[in-house]
């Protein structure tokens, strides 16, 4: 039996109906048209579906949609401020930190969660902070550099 859920996504009040066993990722993608979060594995092993739930980085494939009642969610679709890209988004483009781009939304969200808590991370902290996100194209080199550049820019701003 479907359940009605009221929640906040990227600052907007959102109501949706879902099955009680339906993962949040499926709700976002199939019911709300928010396809920025990707399913790379569905088991919490790749991070492509990363979102920030009440301030904590989580895999949306490992959250039930029904748990969202009264919660606050941030997704990649809410990262830019109107036409102005978030520094992480701009640095990923400028630094060629994406190749195929399928993992990019998850990395941006994970990097944002990292920088929200630690504005000046070391290379090692970045690497471990992003270890839950798999990228198969880049070898992570340019991703780490883009996060370093964005962190620097954000500290300066």
């Amino acid at each position: 039996m479907s359940v009605k859920v009221s929640t906040t996504i990227n600052g907007d009040a959102v109501d949706f109906v879902c099955q009680p066993d339906e993962p949040l990722l499926d709700v976002l993608r199939n019911r709300l048209g928010l396809t920025g979060a990707k399913e790379g594995c569905g088991t919490g092993d790749c991070g492509a579906c990363s979102v920030i739930l009440d301030g904590r980085l989580v895999c949306s494939c490992l959250v039930l949609g029904v748990e969202m009642e009264g919660k606050k969610l941030e997704t990649v679709e809410g990262l830019a401020d109107g036409p102005k890209l978030h520094p992480l988004q701009q640095q990923f483009i400028d630094g060629a930190a994406l190749q195929c781009g399928i993992c990019t939304p998850g990395f941006l969200i994970a990097a944002k969660a990292l920088l929200d808590k630690n504005p000046d991370p070391s290379e090692e902290e970045i690497r471990f902070g992003l270890a839950g996100n798999l990228c198969r194209c880049t070898g992570y080199d340019k991703i780490v550099r883009a996060v370093q550049a964005a962190a620097k820019e954000m500290r300066g701003a």
Binding site: C59, A131, G132
Partner: peptide, 9 residues
């Protein structure tokens, strides 16, 4: 346990 994402839950 798991990743940062998993530790959030």
């Amino acid at each position: 346990i798991g990743s940062k994402q998993v530790q959030g839950r």
